[in-house]
Write a protein that binds this DNA or RNA. Structure first.
Length: 423
RNA sequence: GGAGGAAUGGCAGAGUGGUCGAAUGCGGCAGUCUUGAAAACUGUUGAGGGUCACACCUCCGGGGGUUCGAAUCCCUCUUCCUCCGCCA
């Protein structure tokens, strides 16, 4: 959520910047400024009314104490009108503030200067590429065939016990999954991230804090009986650890990593491109989250990108890094780098990590502030990234490491797996 | 699930209808003293809105109510504690 004072002072700049997202901000910003002005006018009037009745109440108290009941009762009558109008003004104020809030929730984050213009994922800018695309064996298989052939993932059973998009991992498949989680967590911990385990369901306030609500309501599973949401990513509970916090500069950097399953309804996205592990309703992910001083957040973002690169280099998977264009950039993000692994047998790139700086967008919703060097309160910057999302990494390993009669395990994972080959 | 009790500033903890945004202690910050530090002493120290700056307004777990006036009374929700029951 953008800050009101930013909108007041830089309306035109914001309109310009949001054009990169193909978002025409003029009408909504005008509405916001009108509502803001209205809200403040009402507030001023209400304040004056309340000040008047506070004054009278004090006088009444003093009169009663000094035994002048008659004068006190006379004053009481004067308060009736004030009470009535402060009640009305209060209601008006609430309605205006709510309307203002609703508008503010509709405005996406301002893209960083470096974000390229563009409409869709086709306009994303490739900024880095690493690793050779392996020449596969004659009749190379896509990962869902490999999974079946070696009996390591059972999609049918998942359908039976839950539904499509909920795979069952078996034997070496399950073990490889656990190995990846441990490996990622170890890498992240070694890089200074504190490992953390969080609830897999969150309340409504947390959903608003990181921006899943109200914009993406339909993408989360909602447990109606208790009004809780299954997390779509560990970003939500982890970042919300610091909701409503007032930190100091000394608290930075705050670096967390956590493994959680992620639940996404992915309504309406079915078809050939979501086969196998490509898109799931439940998947595992290891996430990194940082909370930073505004001056340091882009340095932190670079560090995160380098960190993920290091992991993919170790896994020896061919990948590329994209700088997302305005049209593909997430609602809450100012700058996002996507990592994609090449899925050889499918002949396509699969997104396996998304590393973003949200600047103050989430912090404003979260009321995540710190006292700066001068004792002034400022919003912190929040960042997060996947490190990494499991299913597509798994797909990449299965496809890229397949041989005539089996699948090799990347060297770094062998100690975690306890085997070096699936066959 | 049943029965009770509680929720106050960074923390601890007073306050049960009026001048209380809130005593006191600890902590934090600044100063005195000291070569420096500690101790001691002095001062200062919650958040949000609003203003050029004041004024002023709001906030004592959340929401609603009673009253001229609510941290204080009533209703409700949430959370925590104690006891009972159940249970991985």
């Amino acid at each position: 959520m953008l800050q009101l004072h930013t909108i007041r002072e830089h309306k035109d700049t914001i309109i310009q910047a949001l054009k990169k997202r193909n978002f025409d901000a003029e009408p909504i910003l005008s509405a916001v400024l009108d509502l803001d002005e209205k809200r403040r006018a009402i507030q001023t009037e209400l304040d004056a009314t309340l000040a008047e009745s506070n004054k009278l109440s004090k006088e009444i108290g003093i009169l009663f104490k000094s035994g002048k009941a008659q004068e006190a009762n006379a004053l009481k009558e004067q308060t009736a009108g004030l009470k009535e109008s402060s009640k009305n003004l209060g209601e008006e104020l609430n309605a205006t503030a709510t309307a203002l809030q609703e508008q503010l929730y509709q405005i996406p984050n301002i893209p960083n200067e470096s974000v390229p213009a563009g409409n869709s994922d086709e306009d994303n800018e490739e900024i880095y590429r690493e690793g050779d695309i392996p020449k596969l064996v004659e009749n190379a298989l896509p990962h869902w065939e490999l999974a079946k052939k070696f009996d390591i993932i059972d999609f049918e059973s998942g359908v039976k016990i839950t539904g499509a998009g909920f795979p069952v991992y078996k034997g070496k498949g399950a073990r490889l999954q656990r190995a990846l989680i441990s490996y990622f967590l170890d890498k992240n911990t070694a890089a200074g991230y504190t490992e953390i385990q969080v609830p897999h369901m969150v309340n409504e306030a947390s959903g608003y804090g990181t921006g899943q609500l109200p914009d993406k309501e339909g993408q989360m599973y909602h447990v109606q009986a208790d009004d809780l949401y299954l997390i779509p990513t560990a970003e939500v509970p982890i970042t919300n650890l610091h909701r409503e916090d007032l930190l100091t500069s000394k608290d930075f950097p705050i670096k967390y990593t956590g493994y959680t399953p992620c639940f996404r309804r992915e309504a309406g996205s079915y078809g050939a491109h979501v086969r196998g592990l490509n898109r799931l309703h439940q998947f595992d992910k290891v996430e990194v989250v940082r909370i930073e001083h505004p001056d340091d957040s882009y340095k932190a973002l670079d560090e995160m990108v380098e960190h993920v690169k290091g992991i993919l280099n170790e896994l020896q998977l061919p990948y590329r890094i994209l700088r997302l264009c305005g049209g593909d950039l997430g609602f809450t993000s100012a700058l996002t780098f996507d990592f994609e692994v090449f899925s050889t047998a499918q002949d396509r790139w699969l997104e396996i990590s998304s590393v973003s700086n949200f600047e103050t967008f989430q912090a404003n919703r979260l009321k995540l502030r710190f006292k700066d060097e001068n004792g002034k309160r400022q919003l912190a910057h929040t960042l997060n990234g996947s490190s990494l999302a499991l299913p597509r990494v798994l797909a990449g390993i299965l496809e890229n490491y397949q041989t005539e009669d089996g699948i090799n395990i990347p060297e770094v994972l062998v100690p975690y797996c306890g085997f070096d080959r699936i066959d």
